[in-house]
């Protein structure tokens, strides 16, 4: 059994049909003690995972006096909207600019990155050409090279061509996702039948057109997964913007909030903005995950099982 070496087994997207959960005779056989302890474990950890987010939500609805004066885990006067208003008007709405930057870096970057990773993975899966294995192995090595190790040399290179402190210095390096190529290749070889490509060929469709009209559809779960994880990776990226950017108006939201948080001692009002800004910054990701969960759950299993 290998892990990182691709072993695209027989077509796997067909998922096993799960027996209906807790179908009567089966459920009764389970030890009630085991059942209770399992539920207790899950319950305790639900608190562990959700209480910090709950605290943030509550804190974001309070004004400064109540933040320290009232129960931190329950609401006082509801001033969420005043807080948001204050946040977005602070310093000419620089926070909104950061959110927009993050959306651009992550949204556009993940979209373009997914397309090119999908094309490359597809070619590696479906065509035979010299150097194919070499390319794949180099890309696989790229999965193991931490992106942060590249940040400094990238900065040095970009400063040679005076491109630091620009949108492109963060955007362009974010487009590359070796893991995306890996996942796309595995998924393409398992779920795009050769017969289908052959049929498209007989119909006279070009290779590139076949990819974009036929094959892409079968790769959707993998591509959505690649998109999501690259989106998250770019949205969370900290080292690259930290090292590249000086101009505040180019910051992604993570770097902006980090900057505010380190000035809280000098400018106390920033603490309110950091908390409310933190809450607003995690909402887009939660929404995206919820909307696309049907896809990425399938895609995940393709990447990890094989």
């Amino acid at each position: 059994m290998s892990t990182l070496t691709p072993t695209p087994g027989p077509v796997r997207p067909a998922r096993r049909i799960r027996s209906t959960p807790g179908s009567a005779p089966r459920a009764q056989r389970e030890n009630p003690f085991a059942r209770a302890s399992a539920m207790i474990v899950m319950g305790v950890f639900t608190l562990y995972f959700l209480v910090p987010v709950w605290w943030l939500l509550v804190a974001a609805t309070k004004d400064r006096a109540q933040f320290t004066g009232t129960n931190p885990l329950w609401f006082a006067d509801f001033s969420l909207f005043q807080n948001i208003g204050a946040l977005v008007s602070y310093r000419d709405g620089v926070y909104l600019k950061w959110m927009l930057n993050s959306a651009l870096y992550a949204g556009l970057g993940a979209l373009v990155g997914t397309i090119i990773a999908g094309m490359c993975g597809y070619a590696l899966a479906k065509y035979r050409f010299p150097g194919r294995e070499l390319i794949f192995n180099v890309v696989l090595g790229g999965v193991l090279v931490p992106a942060t190790a590249l940040a400094l040399p990238l900065f040095l290179i970009f400063s040679q061509i005076s491109l630091t402190n620009t949108f492109w210095s963060v955007f362009l390096p974010s487009l590359v996702s070796p893991f995306g190529v890996y996942l796309a290749r595995i998924y393409a070889s398992a779920s795009v039948p050769d017969e289908l490509i052959e049929a498209a060929r007989l119909d006279g469709a070009g290779e590139v057109r076949t990819f974009f009209t036929v094959s892409v559809r079968m790769m959707v779960p993998a591509l959505v997964t690649v998109f999501l994880f690259q989106f998250v990776a770019i949205w969370n990226n900290f080292f690259l913007p930290l090292i590249m950017l000086r101009d505040e108006t180019l910051f992604p939201v993570t770097l902006g909030l980090y900057g505010w948080n380190s000035q809280v001692n000098q400018i106390p009002v920033l603490r309110d903005y950091v908390l409310i800004g933190a809450l607003l910054s995690i909402i887009p990701l939660i929404i995206i995950f919820l909307l696309l969960q049907r896809f990425w759950r399938n895609g995940l299993s393709a990447g990890s099982v094989k």
Partner: peptide, 22 residues
Amino acid sequence: RAILIFVLPFGALFSLFYLVPI
């Protein structure tokens, strides 16, 4: 030609932003 079109964009970016920095 198709293979080139598929592989080149990623290959170029990977070289520029992974191999060259290393």
